[in-house]
Design a protein around this nucleic acid. Sequence first.
DNA 1: GCCTGAATGACAACCGGTTGCCGACTTCTA
DNA 2: TAGAAGTCGGCAACCGGTTGTCATTCAGGC
Lengths: 341, 341
Amino acid sequence: MATTQPAAVDRPATIHDIAALCGVAASTVSRALSTPDRVNIRTRQRIEAAAARLHYTPNSQAKALSSGRTGAVGVLVPDITNPFYFDLIRGTQLQLKAAGYTQLLVDTEESDEVEASTVEQLRKSADGIIVAASRLSDEALLNAAAKMPLVAINRDVAGVPAVLIDTPSGTSQALDHLISLGHTRVAYVAGPTTSQSSERRWTALSLAAEERGVEVRRLGPFAPKTQSGAAAADAVVHSGVTACLAFNDLIAIGMLQRLRERGIRVPQDMSIVGCDDIFGADFCNPPLSTMASPIEQAGRVAVSMLLAQLNPFAGGGTRSRSVMPTHLTVRGSTGPVRQPG
Amino acid sequence: MATTQPAAVDRPATIHDIAALCGVAASTVSRALSTPDRVNIRTRQRIEAAAARLHYTPNSQAKALSSGRTGAVGVLVPDITNPFYFDLIRGTQLQLKAAGYTQLLVDTEESDEVEASTVEQLRKSADGIIVAASRLSDEALLNAAAKMPLVAINRDVAGVPAVLIDTPSGTSQALDHLISLGHTRVAYVAGPTTSQSSERRWTALSLAAEERGVEVRRLGPFAPKTQSGAAAADAVVHSGVTACLAFNDLIAIGMLQRLRERGIRVPQDMSIVGCDDIFGADFCNPPLSTMASPIEQAGRVAVSMLLAQLNPFAGGGTRSRSVMPTHLTVRGSTGPVRQPG
DNA sequence: GCCTGAATGACAACCGGTTGCCGACTTCTA
DNA sequence: TAGAAGTCGGCAACCGGTTGTCATTCAGGC
């Protein structure tokens, strides 16, 4: 059967096949498909019919090569398996797809070198990139942003368009919450020293604490993984505080486990506030009070900002900075301070 | 400073730039870089030096267009935010990167149509694809596999290379575990009807139950999300069983929450076994007994099988099927049956 | 009936590589 | 020293589109 078909070898159809079928030049086919106004409506309809008949799909490589636009956007995250990024990735994916772009997702393995080389490579194979929690130095990031359209997420560098999640201001909410429960000695369980948001959060927190006349101390740094939770828990207990803010939910969840092993009750003996409201924060034991942020939305916003850079027409004034609010979600891991004595 | 540089407009260097710099033809540069034996060692070294000086990086689009190889592999998952896929994705990513390939990750949104169109598109822009938990019909999948190198994960279709996770045999372990705890009435909380593994698991389970003389009943189907857990929990309670196997951990975790709301204790009043051992299964409340499988390894194996298809040399006999074992991990969600009366 | 201009479509160069083919130069052999 | 064999590098076509330029056609205006 199949062999009796006239034209179709089972190779994807090209514009040349369509051109031959319609008796026009390949360039006409190209125009009919990309700038329909440039071609007579009758010709165009013939071409469209032929394209449909041949199941024509444009070759994105060729398109990219000749037009310089790849239709792809790189999304760089430090660690795919960190649940924090799930919703972010989903947000970017949905928004990119809606705009007809392909998402190139890369795990940079928490490494600035991998990140740098990925950026360099993507410079040719993507139209722009979105970098979450970049490990690059300020100048390296600025440099990258100068070379190609780029939006950073959770990284604040002058001159680099960014979507920021305003956890610093969330920390004062969290602190107020703890104060309202009677806590006066609070620890901050810091994330990696390379994390800008950890730094900014600490700054905001210590400032807020000073204003309110409570004591905060900083512990760490700890890697943002559940495995670090044990060490963090021990450090917190040893420090003598009654409550703590963890850099993120992974650490907080790890702490929960360690504290249970040690027979320290949460929240009776220790209150814990996490950050990010990741998958799992609502069903761990006890459920985690945490600073929730609209991560998926952050992803979408980042995409919109990038697309605005890519085609400056299409309205939508090009914001170069967007701050997502954070709010405290109180669950079971925070409670009144234990009355001494 | 930068403006005083002679050649470099700030455009990525091409082989033509190198050729001009070395006084050779572009084709020679191409050969020096891709088939080094084909070119004199002295010429080659000059070219390599020039390439380094110019920070030359090959343009992958152009490479793909002319050679037909893209250096990319598509990885399709039904839902990126399902934690089950995290480790899978990480496994494929690591293995692909090690082999010098780029991973194109796509979320097919649980839709066979999206999946089909993605496959069609990837046919040109990737050298091969890995499809996890395909929603395609058997014939569609077979057809896709005929058109391009493809490896399926968790999908068993004759003629389609696959990595299978042997949960069916895991179910009898789980059943034995429950029987050893005294349970005789057990429910299977089924996943989507489109899921082949749900079907196979049910088949294996009902067979094992018959052999052992215990009663199993099937409930569902339920969507593989925590949100479905509530309905599943209610159905299980209503069915009068004392233990159940859930299609996956997401449903099981959702059930845990619902049961707690209803004041039904796990495991005293109801034992639950999940499947997949996803992120969160170890810290939910109570920690979930579950069928654990080496998902990351499954991803790696899938990549190896695909690469074996791509370059049939390089040894490593092309297996077309690989089965990953499953084992039961017992945690807190299963316990002795409650003595009636 | 001629001129102007818009509409239309063909031609060809180009994007950045790869690769088949061939000629020139070396080197080895007889 | 001539001829054969092998090395090495250049030419040019090609991958599948895009796009600037230009010739042709046709309609309308005078």
